Amino acid sequence: MGNFHKPSVIMLSYLKGEISMDYGQIIANRILSLCRQRRLSINKLANMSNIKQSTLDNIIHGGSRNPQIKTLHKVAYAFGMTMSEFFDFQEMDDVSFEDDGNDEQEEI
């Protein structure tokens, strides 16, 4: 068996340095923006995506800082988008991923 350790914590910041936002906030803002554009409530999105409203509320209000890809896939599908389209927006393009300085990789 290999040596396992916790993965590095990923910190996000805009390249321009103007705003510091974590990944969860960026995703929450994307969901809220798409809801506004399509005039959807979080409740309606929950029904359309077959996700519990409490799960979406946790994403929106910061209770879930790293939503599961399956959840985001359901959200994207409810918006009529592919995952690529869902993640194709300026704030995501402007993000810089910086780890905590631990460059070691997990052994499998």
Rank of each mutant, 00 (worst) to 15 (best):
I69K: 06
S20N: 11
I10N: 04
S96M: 15
R65A: 10
D93P: 00
F87N: 01
Q25M: 14
S54I: 07
T71Q: 03
R30I: 07
I60D: 05
R38T: 07
I59R: 02
G62T: 01
Q53M: 11
K70D: 15
L56D: 03
S64H: 03
F4V: 07
N66V: 07
D22I: 14
H61V: 03
S49V: 02
V75C: 04
E18L: 15
Q68W: 00
I42F: 12
Q25T: 15
Q105W: 08
M83H: 02
Q25V: 07
K44P: 01
L56G: 03
E107Q: 13
I60N: 04
L34V: 05
S41Q: 06
Q105F: 14
N50S: 14
L45N: 01
S41A: 08
S96H: 08
N58K: 11
A78G: 14
I60H: 04
F87C: 05
H5S: 13
F86C: 10
P7D: 12
E106D: 13
S54A: 15
E104K: 09
L56W: 04
G63V: 03
V75Q: 01
D100M: 02
D22T: 10
Y23S: 12
G80E: 06
N29D: 15
M48A: 13
S33V: 03
E85Q: 12
K70R: 09
E98F: 01
D100C: 12
I27K: 04
T82H: 05
L32S: 10
E98K: 11
Q53L: 12
I10G: 04
T82F: 02
G24M: 10
M83D: 13
V95R: 03
Q37P: 01
M21W: 06
N47F: 09
M81T: 02
D100T: 05
I60K: 08
L72N: 05
N43M: 14
H5K: 11
L72T: 05
D93F: 10
D88S: 13
A46Q: 02
S20W: 00
R30Y: 11
E107W: 04
K52L: 09
G24A: 10
H61M: 02
G2Y: 09
L40D: 03
A28H: 06
N47Y: 09
I26S: 10
R30H: 08
D99A: 01
R38A: 12
S33K: 08
Q25W: 06
D57Y: 09
Y23G: 04
S8F: 11
H73E: 14
I51F: 00
G63Q: 05
D103Y: 12
I27N: 08
G17I: 08
K52M: 09
V9T: 14
S8C: 12
M48W: 00
K70Q: 11
N66H: 10
P67T: 02
M48V: 05
G101E: 03
D99I: 06
L15F: 10
D99Q: 03
N58T: 01
D100N: 15
K74D: 14
D88T: 07
F86P: 03
